[in-house]
Amino acid sequence: MPSLKERLNLDQMKRSVLDSQVWRSMFRHGYEDTPRNRVLMVVDNLWLHLHPTKIRRHAIRIRFTWCMGGVTFLLFLYLVVTGVVLMFYYRPVGEYAYADIKYLEFDAPFGMFMRNMHRWAAHAMVIAVWLHMLRVFMTGSYKPPREFNWVIGVLLLTLTLLLSFTGYLLPWDQLAIWAVTVGTNMARATPLLGSEGPFAEMVGVTPRFDARSALLGGTIVGPPTLLRFYVLHCIVVPLIAAILMMVHFWRIRKDGGISGPL
């Protein structure tokens, strides 16, 4: 009969967990520090396998990439998670939207915190994308063979701004509708397609049927606009952005990994 002390041997317990069939079925590799295991840690893990197994020494320096692409992606993930939580409480209807935000702030558990996280992460993401673009430019990383990934990047930048802009309307307060009014007024001036733009008479667009009213679902920023922006903000734009991010990451690998002096 083993003594109590022997039975509570921590090493023994750890080994029996790590050696169990259940654990082994989930995690194939331990932390054994061999070159082979280091490679397996990356390629056998869905989340890590986007990485190559080995990477050029300069590419892991913060000073080279500023880590800004990764930070942008991290912020995007936080926005998805907090955004889904907000969706549980928010209804994109003129009568409810503002009240739902108030409810979220005062009554929903961690509601204010979730809203703050979502808002600030959105601002931070815009800044992070700008910085990422700045560093990609400064290292000349758009040069062949990475031209196309830069183009994808510009699309991602545009989508990031659009995400932020469509989300701006959703609290349905004064700040929201007037900022979006200022922003969408420009659409009225689109050449050919806007009712006040050059050559509008020739095309025959009217304030009720032009580029701006298609965006707003009416002639002013009203409840139909709220619904449109909600659908764009929660479904259309994030979906396109997520797809383009996959292409972006895949291209980084296919273009030979992070750029560096050849």
């Binding site: 503002y98 702030e105 703050n116 996280m117 600030w120 931070a124 004064q174 200022v182």
Partner: peptide, 28 residues
């Protein structure tokens, strides 16, 4: 991000009112 979100609250103004235009009206 967590500290920032605990310390500073996101802005929320008066409910949307199409007949009251703030001055200045600024885009994001």
């Amino acid at each position: 991000l967590v500290v920032w979100s605990i310390v500073i609250d996101a802005p929320l103004e008066e409910p949307a009112n199409p007949s009251v235009t703030p001055n200045p009206s600024k885009a994001p």
